[in-house]
Structures are given as C-alpha cells and as structure tokens.
Write a protein that binds this DNA or RNA. Sequence first.
DNA 1: GGCGAGCGCGCG
DNA 2: AAAGCGCGCGCTCGCC
Length: 580
Amino acid sequence: MTPPPEHRRAPAAVVLGRTADAIAAATLDEEGAELARTEVAASELSAWVAGVEQMSSPRWVWNDAPRWYGTLLADGVRVARCHDLRLCHAILRDSALVAESAAVRRDARWDAAPHAAEESSAPALFELDDTQSSVGPPGDLDEALAELTRQREAIAGSADPARLRLLLAAESAGALLAEELRAAGVPWDAREHDRILAETLGERPPSGGKPAKLVAAGDRVRAALGDPGASLDSQPKLLRSLHRVGVMVESTSRWELAEQEHPVVAPLLEYKRLSRLLSANGWTWLDEWVSEGRFRPVYVPGGVVTGRWASSGGGALQLPRQLREAVRADPGWKLVVADVAQLEPRVLAAMSSDAALAAAARGRDLYAGIVDSGAVGTRQDAKIAILGAMYGATTGQSGRLVPRLRRAYPRAMGLVDDAARTGEDGGVVSTWLGRTSPPPSGAWSAAQSHATEAEASGADETRARRWARDRGRFTRNFVVQGTAAEWALAWLADLRGRLWALPTVDADHAAPRSGPVFGSRAHLAFYLHDEVIVHTPAELADAAARAVTDAAAAAGRLLFGDFPVDFRLDVRVSDTALKD
DNA sequence: GGCGAGCGCGCG
DNA sequence: AAAGCGCGCGCTCGCC
C-alpha cells in the first residue's frame, strides 16, 4: 500500500543537534533517510518543537534527554516519544544480541556520563555553545545522525531486532519520564515534614545545633557507658567504648547491637535512629530539596548496570517510610499510590516459563501460593527462600530453604542457577529484552587464570573461588532485577500515555506548582523500582487508578505475551503516600 | 583543605 | 535475626 504523499513527507523522526549559535534539526522518514534540514533559533526551539509535535508527533532523537527536555517542559512542551542516543548507545554497546563487529561498539565518545540536570529556570540553556563541550555525549547534528545510523545498523543486524527495539523504546520513554518527574515534582508538605521532625527529634534548634531529643538520647548512651565524654558519631571510638563496658561486638551495626543484653543498647539504637533522620532527611535536607511544595529529585535512568534507575542528590530512592506522611496531594487533588507485589519472582516465573511458579502467583500473594503448593510451610519461609534463590544465599535459613524451591520450581530455579554458573565461569548474561551484564574486570580474569597455574598458593585459589562466587551471585540477580526493571519501564511508558489521555482540568482546579505541562492533568510524581505515585485531580483519581492497573496488565502482555502470569498491584487512593 | 575508603543505614 | 542482590549519602578518618 502506498501512503498518500503528505503522509510520506511527515517526518517519522526529528534529530536535534546544535550549531555554534542555533539548533539544527533533520527530519527523517521511516527508513532513516533524511527529508529536510532546518535551523531554528535557540529561543524559538520550544515553540518550534511544540508545532512539529502537534502536527506529526515524531520520535525526537537527541544526544541526551536532560540536555533538551527539561527546558522544553519548563516552556510547557511535552513530547510523546524520543530516542535517547546516549542511553541506547550504552545498551547496544554491551548487548549480547548485537554483532561483535557492529560499529556502535567502537565509539567511546558516546560512553559519556549524562549531562547534569539543568535547573528548570536556567534560561541560558539553549544559548550555550556546547558543541565543544567536554561534558556529555557529542552535541552536533552530524554526530547525532552518524550515531543514529550506527545504532539502526546494529539493531537491524542483531539477533533479535524486535526485542532490542522494545528495550530501546522503553529506555527512551524512561528518559522522558525522568525529566517529567523532576518537572512535576513530588508534592511535599514541608509543614508536615517539620512536624514529624519536631515530634521525633524535638523542635528545630535555632542555629543548626542538635535537637533536644537527640541530645537526650546521647546523654542516656553516655550514662550507660559511664563516660560523659564518649564520642557516638565515630565508629572506632564508639566500638572501643562498647568494649570497655563489656559489649563485645565486632561492629556497631544495628543488628549486632540488638543481639546484646546491655543497658546501653536501647538508648544507642534510639540515638542512631534519631541521628540518621536528622542527617539524612532533617531540616537541612528540607531547606535544600523542598521548595514551593515540591521535592524535585534528579533521576538517573539506566544509572544501575541492571537497568534500574539511580538518583543523584536528594536521596530520592531512599525516602524513609517515616516521611511518607509529608508526601501530600495539593488541595482538591489525590495521590494514587501503587506498588507491585513480589515483582521479581513474578518476572522470574514469566521469563523462565515456569507454569508452577506462575500458578502460585496468580490472583494472590505469591508467597501464600508457594505455601499452598506445599513447597514450604509458612509465608515467611517462602519469602526467605525466594529472596535467597534470587540473591544466591548459601547459608543460614535461606540457604536451607532454597533446595525445596529447586524441587518445586525447577524451571525458574534453573534459570537463575544457570545465570550464576555463567557468571562464575566469566561469561555474560542478558535480561529478557537483551540488556547484557558487563564482562568481568581484568583483575577478576587474572585472578581466575592465575589460580589454575602451578605456582598459585592456596590463598590465591581461595580468593579466586570467592570472587567467582561473588560474580555468580551478581549475574544470578542481574537477569531477574534487570528484567524486572524492563517490566517497570514498560509499565511506566504505558501509564504515561494513559494519563496523558485523561481530560485536563480547569485553571481553578489546577496545581500550578506541578509546572505548565502537568499542573492541569493527572501525572506521575514518583517512581521507585516497583512503585509509582500519581498526583491527580480528585475527580480523576478513579480513572488514574484504573490507568495504573491497566498499564500493569499491558506491560505484562508486551513483555511476556500470553504467558499466564499476573502482576498484582496494591493500589491506594489517598491524600498522603503513607503505607498502612 | 581536598579526596577516597570504610562504615552504617535508608530504599527496592 | 541476617543471609544473598542492587543502589546513594552522611559521617569520620587517614592520607596527601
């Protein structure tokens, strides 16, 4: 079928790059052939992108999403699709699906770290001449076009182009979403945060000193140690103080202290709890990271080798449960808080086609299903056994339970056991969609080969074996954690589209602090591995909750087709992100 | 005074 | 109880 001419001329993709004083854009057709080239003044870029987006909704191709999209969003421009060259390069470079000879593997300039996230208020972004910048991947149009060509060739020549396309689309959607999450921010009630701090630590001290309850806890510890001058914040000193009063621990970690019977233990654990809250998420954090009712963390898509996101600054991925009450919808808005129950074992069931494990998970708590199958006796045992199987536990209760799972779910356990063996042998493993683990380091390989030589000492052999097992546990977990991250990206990408399709609200119901794009509509506000928070006008909360659930089902089908595994969500509509 | 390592602990 | 995976960050301390 021949499409009408006007459709053929509509660009399938637009590649953006920079010149010394403007933006250069190339429009491409479906096959990647260049249709036209345009120059746009930097100050006009957002308006130009908005127009093209409305007309043809192309896939925007750029070197690095943070470099482009933050400013577009600040200008009120949202795009539907992109291809993030930096992120896709990293995947293709390492993927076992890609031919060894592929040119994309050999251009180290695209191995660059991401650009630091721009302040959304930075007006000079598009004025900067960063074509010569030493930070981030190459910035000019011809470089971007050349890299895109290399990537298209690598995909087309790969062992599974369809999977890779899915992975790269999901990764790129994540790149968009990371900027959107930052633009919208987590709705944060600073007064509630302050109330929690004051209740736990005592009132905020005027000049950055220690709050009263922390001081009091410290005094109780020093009294129990019989040493008014004891230093509690220095691990070596604290350890010596504990030894002096007969608490013979090897570390000062919480779990080891908790095993001890001594009057110092309770106040010390309390002191540690308060001290942690103050230093990690106290008033200093609040001042630095929350403004105008929003926490705007910096997400780093693909920041973890497995494909999980990392974060940079603000500790976005470590928000303590204690502070969830400070996550609070704007007036007239609601939060939809949803997390996946037992994501990783469900993913493992699907990727290994383990029908028995999938059946245990279907329509219920997966751990309860394992108990019902008779493999283990209690829910707690099931949880410990599953975690042990995915992490490679060999000792303790977990190590004892894993063999029972191996009998009950041989396909699932076979998959992770194979991944571990491959890693121990120095090989690489891949996720369901083709993200591949890094090869072993030079030191690792040298240690392994040295251990087989005649002059190797027993210590050499012991060390080599330990490193091999360490790597086996890493590759064992890589396939599951990485595939779970792919499922989560598919979930997010689908949800992002569903939320965008919901109606917008009138200006008098808007949440302007979520920015010009998202202030008038339900939007994603937070994402953490297997959990999302949607901030939505109250009247759309039910629709948003349905979108979250429907997106999870769609993600399961997209990755695993008809394989009968379900991804159960706990979904709550509430004013706060508090978990029960 | 800057920098990296080690510790400990928050999250999944 | 932690064990077995993946992170980021604040703190101290030794080194330069």
